[in-house]
Computed example of a mutant assay.
Amino acid sequence: MNLKEHIRSIKDYPKKGILFRDITTLIKNEKAFSETIDQIIERSKKYKIDKIAAIESRGFVFASAVSYLLKKPFILLRKKNKLPADVHSVDFELEYGTATIEMHKDSVEKDENILIIDDLIATGGTAEAAAKLVEISGGKVCCFIFVINLFDLKGSDNLINNGYKVENLINFPGH
């Protein structure tokens, strides 16, 4: 199945000049969604995984299903002030602003191998912040898996250049 055919492209969203890659058309199709989860699981088999983390909010859609099927604990990486217990926080740059991502301090134990899943990588700022959260807690990022890679924005390349393993299911230009 060609997953790329199930992604809708929307011009000038959320602002002029951005070509938004919409996963809602993929997840509403049960065959395409199942194939996506199967591909993530297949790619994850190369790595020793203790826990699975996902970046808010669309990463949760994929990672929760993968976590369930692999029987691995699931960690939420959320926007600032969304988690109720003590958190680690990392500030980062977005393509169109700045943000903060947080994780509960008790989510990751020392030397645990964490798979981070998200729906899309553009410049990689959010993914780098997610890795820092895992590393602050003493864990190791064994791999990132992204459903969509906007290859010309170089986020995957930046992660690889910083020593991370990266798997991408679908490649699109970002513009």
Rank of each mutant, 00 (worst) to 15 (best):
V87I: 13
N2M: 07
D86V: 05
A32D: 10
Y13T: 09
N81I: 09
L77F: 08
N149Q: 14
I145D: 05
E135C: 04
E109C: 08
E93R: 00
S137G: 02
I170F: 04
R43P: 00
E35Y: 08
A32M: 06
A129M: 03
F92E: 11
D118A: 02
I40G: 02
T25A: 08
F146V: 13
D86E: 12
I160D: 14
L19G: 03
K46P: 03
A122K: 08
K31P: 00
F60S: 05
I170L: 05
L19H: 11
N2L: 10
D152K: 04
I37Y: 06
Y164D: 03
I136R: 12
A32S: 11
I114T: 01
M1A: 10
I75F: 03
H6R: 15
K154C: 12
F172Y: 13
I114V: 14
Q39T: 01
S156N: 05
L83P: 11
V87Y: 07
E167A: 04
I101D: 10
T98A: 15
S34P: 01
A129W: 04
N168C: 15
K48C: 06
L115F: 02
R58D: 07
F62P: 03
K140I: 10
F62K: 01
C143D: 14
L169H: 00
I7Y: 10
L76Y: 09
E5L: 14
